[in-house]
């Protein structure tokens, strides 16, 4: 009974009185409704205002379909690049000691810190064919970076770079390197240790980083807008397409394309949820079934 009393008072400390609780809930949910749910629902409603026919036509037009596929290409190319880079970078940052580590560590957040438009302009400076650093040389070799999907991929990779690193670093720090060292003493080389020990241990961090990168790659507008030149049917991704439809007064078409874009994002989140739920359930079965009586687990023992 005494223990129960303590538990109750602790709940009160955190949540306060009933009125305070209700107020907090109202603020939290109201904020979400106002800024997130209502705008998204309006988009869905608006999309079909001029009838489904127009919506369908906007999406299935050759430019619309091209934008859809180009967006997928952006994701399919940039996400694996960032995943591989992110995991390697996280391992280097956590497991290696070297000069300038702090600098690299803060550089990784640069894409978050600077506006995507600035990223786009920077790429313009580097790759333009007249006086960019690499532009003329690449042009001589027949490679066009600006106003082509290559430049757009650069831009997308740049803006979504930090996600995997930032998700994986804390996981690596938490698990420590004991298991990796144990694998080495058992005869595993670096590659085997990575595939059999490190990667399975960080898989949730990687998964989450991949989902965030995907969402960002799907929706990137600013940087891609600058380097793509927005050529319909050539360098137009879905976000650019939405914007162009809106600017050319096909408002319901713009909303229809926006719905498609939103659905892609939702599908990503949904997939993540599915994977996570399945995986975590299995993990919980592994770690949290407690111990069977009589196995000698006692107070004071390390349970890492």
């Amino acid at each position: 009974m005494a223990a129960r009393g303590i538990a109750d008072s602790r709940i009160n400390v955190v949540q306060g009185s009933r009125r305070a609780r209700l107020t907090m809930r109202t603020i939290g949910i109201g904020y979400l409704l106002l800024l997130l749910v209502i705008p998204v629902i309006t988009v869905f409603i608006k999309a079909f205002e001029d009838g489904a026919a127009n919506a369908w036509e906007t999406i299935t037009s050759p430019e619309g379909m091209h934008a859809f596929w180009l967006t997928l290409v952006m994701v399919v190319v940039s996400v694996p690049l960032n995943t591989i880079f992110g995991v390697v970078c996280a391992i280097v940052l956590v497991r290696h000691k070297f000069r300038g580590k702090a600098l690299i560590n803060s550089l990784i957040d640069l894409p978050f810190a600077i506006s995507p438009v600035v990223v786009g302009l920077a790429l313009m400076l580097v790759f333009n064919q007249r006086d960019g650093w690499f532009g003329p040389w690449l042009a001589d070799h027949g490679i066009r970076v600006l106003f082509s999907p290559i430049g757009m991929i650069f831009a997308t990779v740049f803006v979504s770079m930090p996600f995997v690193v930032r998700e994986v670093v804390p996981v690596l720090q938490e698990i420590g390197d004991d298991q990796e060292q144990a694998a080495r003493t058992l005869g595993a080389n670096g590659w085997q240790t990575f595939w059999r020990i490190t990667l399975p241990s960080i898989r949730w961090g990687v998964t989450y980083g991949v989902v965030l990168s995907t969402a960002r790659a799907l929706g990137e507008f600013g940087a891609v807008a600058v380097v793509s030149g927005k050529i319909s049917g050539v360098t137009e991704t879905l976000p650019l397409y939405v914007s162009k439809q809106y600017e050319t007064f096909n408002v319901s078409g713009a909303y229809a394309a926006a719905v498609l874009l939103a659905l892609l994002g939702l599908a990503t989140l949904f997939a993540m949820n599915l994977i996570e739920r399945g995986g975590r359930k299995r993990d919980q079965a592994i770690t949290n079934t407690g111990h069977t009586p009589g196995t000698g687990l006692s107070r004071g023992e390390e349970t890492r």
Partner: peptide, 10 residues
């Protein structure tokens, strides 16, 4: 079993 299901000594 998984290691999480064992005691420290085990």
């Amino acid at each position: 079993r998984y290691p999480g299901q064992l005691s420290g000594g085990q």
